[in-house]
Design a protein around this nucleic acid. Structure first.
Lengths: 194, 194
DNA sequence: AAAACACACTAACGTTTGTTAGATTCGTCT
DNA sequence: AGACGAATCTAACAAACGTTAGTGTGTTTT
């Protein structure tokens, strides 16, 4: 029932609208009929492009998850100081959020509705990511670049600190993406106190 | 159908279990029947203690919202420097989360499912809170205690940075509530860089 | 021209949802 | 003992859910 050939963009439209709708109403509160309405077709017609509601969630969550992982690997490979890598990491998160706000929101909030098997995979993906960031932080503490912080607390504080961007940022909020990135970097790396 | 007299704690049990369940499955994914099962009665029996599923959500969201507002007012009234007030604010958020983790999670994630009228009230409550914190930040910038940061960005970075606690902290994670508070304070106020 | 296919439709399925109605049980007070 | 009301139960409702079946249409392929 699902399909494969090089289709026009209908499937992508469904995924885009689904991300938007799931963000608004969350996975459980969004119905296939409402999604279909936004796409402009009837609900059963969507099953020619996707296999199930669950599959939509999977695709969204893993596309975002894999995006984070692969980009973190890019940063890791570069020849930079820990601090420069952390800055790049923060910039990365902000940019992904600005570009894929809806999907990021879904991956952050609705991953728990993944089916058992996919849920396990997703948690592994995420904890692998977190582990790599913790290693980066440990490296920074050991080399003396960073304060002797608890790396777990730091990990979550950093990642969490950036999550609001997806709810708040709009291109015309009077602050550019670059300013936003640099502001957050300043707060997290240098602190608020003058 | 709902009720009032000094009841035993059954209503509170329902609210506590509801917070836990909503946190696990989110509002839309949690059913009244499953909630009833956890409480130990049949679903229709719950309607002697609460008016509706929506009412449960309202009670949870506004009890947490009002808690934050009233405690912020306590801090505002005290004779402290801006920095000390910010520290107290961070401690406050951590403590509320540790004590009411489930309910905080619901108020943070499921408020969008409030009915139109209550949704409006909740947004007002929250933006009133945010406004007061922004004023505090502005005061700090003007007095020279804080760096010349964008106060909106700072507001959300601080509040957001603390939200992960509710997902992560457990009494036996090898870090006490006090250590946790002080670690977060250090990161946000003094920064990570040595 | 015929066959194949992609894509949309309507109708309907079996479940699950929140909630109501009505009867029953239980403890408390007069 | 009898009355009352709180608290629980079973049965059931109407609506909404994700999804399947079956059909039609228009385009592409052979």
């Amino acid at each position: 029932m699902a399909k494969n050939p090089r289709n026009n963009g209908k499937r992508d439209v469904i995924l885009k609208e689904a991300a938007k709708l799931f963000k608004e109403k969350s996975f459980g509160g969004a119905s296939m009929r409402e999604l279909a309405e936004r796409v402009g077709i009837e609900a059963p017609s969507m099953y020619h492009h996707i296999a199930s509601k669950d599959e939509i969630l999977e695709i969204i969550c893993f596309s975002i998850g894999n995006l984070y992982v692969s980009q973190l690997e890019d940063i890791s490979r570069r020849e930079l100081s820990v601090i420069e890598k952390l800055k790049e990491l923060i910039r990365l998160h902000v940019r992904i959020m600005i570009k894929n706000g809806d999907a990021v929101s879904v991956a952050n909030n609705d991953w728990k509705h993944l089916s058992d098997e996919k849920l396990k995979k997703f948690k592994e993906l995420r904890s692998g990511y977190e582990k790599k960031v913790v290693e980066l932080l440990k490296e920074g503490v050991e080399s003396g670049e960073l304060k002797a912080v608890n790396t777990s607390v730091t990990l979550f504080t950093i990642l969490s600190a950036i999550r609001w961007v997806e709810l708040w940022w709009r291109p015309n909020r009077g602050i550019s993406a670059e300013e936003l990135e640099e502001s957050i970097i300043t707060i997290l790396l240098e602190g608020l106190v003058k």
